[in-house]
Nucleic acid binder design. Structure first.
Lengths: 205, 205
DNA sequence: CTATTAAGTGGAGAACACTCCTTTTATATT
DNA sequence: AATATAAAAGGAGTGTTCTCCACTTAATAG
């Protein structure tokens, strides 16, 4: 009668559930590659995977989460790359390190454009304001640290958190695509413009 | 048999159409005030205005356009205010004029938050990238001119168009609300941060 | 081996944006 | 007054996201 709570019993994932999960992932990858992330609906995925749509939504609250699951590994790699880069350039000026990170991120963006776009798609329900994607949160923290370091030499400056928000916004799906498609900038040009805009010039002090 | 094309016959708006238009506008205002822009659907408006949804969509392609129609007058006023301000401060430094414009826009944003938010709601169909709202386009042009002027004194600088894009993005619905709600900034603080971020300090040259 | 039960499933259906096509009608023309 | 016609209306229909909940089932405890 007394229920075991916590510790002892951990209820592993059910076998059939695991199968379904794998099926969803496979179908999603296939459909995304075939038609492009934007043109594949959750219904379609559910149907193709032969599960009810409720089942799909039970696992992924929306397409963003599904996309995130699909590139999770790549995201981990990105952050490992960043970490390595930061360690190898520890002694160089923070503005340069910042630029390096941005370069890495832009390369990532280009490589995984489709899915990353899916992840960021504000999409669903209300909360545009609420949840930034976890990728952004982690990058934000890195940026804040670098800005703090840069700011030590600057007499007046915006809050690091604010500047980081702005910078990330500049690299977000919408802004980035706008610069590419409407302004016609290349990834390299965007990087350069972003640096000029958000990184104050070196003080030769 | 021969059709008159163009010039002579101009087919005025039909009387019943005009009535419907007014009805839509009235209903929309009422519902928006009653439930908030976000929570009113096009269907609801159509139903309440006693017209078919097709009729509503025939006039406004989406909620954004409807909202825009509702604040069009205020937008005109905003730009008149800006123009007046610019004329009265013609001789002051461009960075200061820029700040003035931003201040006016933020005040506008606060006053017409609801509807403006509706206008910007990227919402609908694909084209997130495509059409910036006309308000943004016009502001963008003003900003570019000011940045060009500022840049004359700066040795290195980002493209004015780019910087203007970033600045407007900072004041867009999503970013602005994020700063208010998540970062907890007041409108004044946001203005200040934006200036610090996007307007280079005066050169005492 | 059975019973219990939380985890999982399926799919109907609500709510919504938006389209398409038929029918209606105000207006201009004769 | 009759007719032609482009403008307007209407609303059923499509495709979407997402919720709800009655039902099923795998894992576990006894």
């Amino acid at each position: 009668m007394a229920k075991e709570i916590g510790a002892s019993t951990v209820r592993t994932e059910r076998r059939d559930a695991a199968e379904n999960r794998q099926r969803i992932l496979n179908v999603a990858i296939r459909l995304f590659e075939q038609h492009g992330v934007e043109h594949v609906s959750m219904n379609q995925i559910a149907a193709e995977a032969q599960i009810g749509s409720g089942t799909l939504y039970r696992r992924y609250r929306n397409k963003s989460e599904l996309c995130l699951d699909l590139i999770k590994d790549n995201v981990v790699l990105l952050f490992e790359d960043i970490e390595t880069y930061l360690e190898q350039n520890r002694s160089r000026p923070p503005s340069l390190r910042l630029k390096g990170i941005l370069s890495l991120f832009i390369r990532f963006r280009e490589k995984k454009a489709q899915l990353l776009t899916g992840v960021e798609d504000s999409s669903s329900s209300q909360s545009k304001t609420r949840t930034r994607s976890p990728i952004h949160d982690e990058l934000h923290q890195l940026l804040v640290e670098l800005f703090d370091e840069i700011n030590k030499r600057e007499p007046v400056h915006p809050e690091s958190a604010f500047r980081a928000d702005m910078l990330l916004m500049a690299l977000s799906k919408d802004a980035y695509l706008f610069q590419k498609e409407v302004r016609g900038y290349s990834p390299e040009t965007i990087l350069e413009q972003v640096c000029l805009t958000f990184i104050p010039p070196e003080r030769d002090n």
